[in-house]
Amino acid sequence: MLTTQTCLVTGSSRGIGRGIALDLASHGATVVVNYRSGEAEAATVVEEIEANGGTAISMQCDVSDYDEVAAMCERVHDRVGPIDVLVNNAGITIDKTFTNMTREDWDRVMDVNLGGVFNSTNCFFDDLLDAEHGRLINISSVVGQQGNYGQANYATTKSGLFGFTRTIALEMARSGSTANCVAPGFVKTDMLDIVPSEVQEKILGRIPLGRFASVEDITGMVSYVASPKSAYMTGQVLSVNGGMDW
C-alpha cells in the first residue's frame, strides 16, 4: 500500500511515534526514524523494521531547532531522497497547574510541540508539494479538544495544530497533496503509565469504550491517511479516542 512512499516520523524512537514508524514500514514504506536523544531506541526501531524486510534509517535532530531540522533535511535527501509523508509526532509535556507554570515551562512546550511542527513542515514542504501522494499528518490529542487539568501549555499546542492543519491543507491543495490531523485519546504508553492509578480510573470513566487506546489503535489511522486511499480527504481532524465527547 505504501511501497512507493518515503515517510519521516518525528519523535519515533518510542511510544506512539515508534508504533507509527513500524506500521508504515509494515505497509512497505521507507521510513526515516527521527529522534532527539534516544539513539539506542531509534536504532532498535530501524533494526526491527529491517528484520521484517523493510527499509529504514535513523536521523538525530532536535525538531525545536530550525537549523538542526534544515540540516536533517539535507541528510535525508542525501540518503533516501525527498520524502512523500511527514508525520509530525514529536512532543513533550511539562505538567503544572497554571499558577505554578513558569514562562520557561510554557515556552519549552511551545518550542517543541508547535515550533517543531513549523520547522519540520517548512523544511520538507517542497517535498510534500512535489510528491505524487504528498501527505502531512500532524499528531494532536484529545487534550487539545477538551483541555486537561495541569496541561494548559500542552493543550494549547495540541489545539493549535487544528488551525495549522486546516490552513496548510488549503495551501497544499493546489498540488493535490493533503494535510490532516490525527487526535488520539489516552494511549497506553510510558507517558500514561506515570499517571496515578486513581487519575487513570477517572479518565477511564469518561471513555465510552471503557479502555485506553493501544498504540495499534492509532497507527492504523495514520497509515490510512498516509496512503493513496485517503486522497480526497484533507483538512480533517480525525479523533481516535474511544468515543470521548468534546
Rank of each mutant, 00 (worst) to 15 (best):
residue 87 V to N: 05
residue 89 N to G: 08
residue 89 N to Y: 00
residue 89 N to A: 05
residue 90 A to K: 01
residue 90 A to R: 02
residue 91 G to P: 11
residue 91 G to V: 06
residue 91 G to R: 10
residue 92 I to M: 11
residue 93 T to L: 12
residue 93 T to N: 12
residue 95 D to T: 01
residue 95 D to E: 05
residue 98 F to S: 05
residue 100 N to I: 00
residue 101 M to R: 07
residue 102 T to I: 02
residue 102 T to K: 04
residue 102 T to Y: 01
residue 103 R to Y: 04
residue 104 E to A: 13
residue 106 W to F: 12
residue 106 W to P: 02
residue 106 W to D: 05
residue 111 D to R: 15
residue 111 D to H: 13
residue 112 V to W: 01
residue 114 L to E: 02
residue 114 L to W: 01
residue 115 G to H: 00
residue 120 S to G: 04
residue 122 N to S: 14
residue 123 C to N: 03
residue 129 L to Q: 11
residue 134 G to E: 10
residue 134 G to Q: 07
residue 136 L to P: 08
residue 137 I to D: 05
residue 137 I to A: 09
residue 138 N to A: 12
residue 140 S to K: 10
residue 141 S to V: 15
residue 141 S to D: 03
residue 142 V to P: 00
residue 144 G to F: 02
residue 145 Q to R: 12
residue 145 Q to Y: 01
residue 147 G to E: 03
residue 150 G to E: 05
residue 151 Q to I: 07
residue 154 Y to A: 11
residue 156 T to P: 00
residue 159 S to K: 13
residue 160 G to S: 08
residue 160 G to Y: 11
residue 161 L to C: 15
residue 164 F to K: 14
residue 165 T to L: 06
residue 165 T to E: 07
residue 166 R to M: 14
residue 166 R to Y: 01
residue 167 T to S: 15
residue 168 I to R: 00
residue 168 I to Q: 03
residue 169 A to P: 06
residue 169 A to D: 09
residue 171 E to F: 08
residue 172 M to C: 10
residue 173 A to K: 13
residue 175 S to Q: 08
residue 175 S to C: 09
residue 177 S to Y: 09
residue 177 S to D: 07
residue 178 T to C: 12
residue 178 T to I: 11
residue 180 N to L: 15
residue 181 C to R: 08
residue 182 V to C: 07
residue 182 V to F: 03
residue 182 V to L: 12
residue 183 A to G: 10
residue 184 P to S: 09
residue 184 P to F: 01
residue 186 F to M: 06
residue 188 K to H: 11
residue 188 K to F: 00
residue 188 K to G: 03
residue 189 T to F: 05
residue 189 T to L: 08
residue 189 T to S: 10
residue 190 D to L: 05
residue 191 M to C: 04
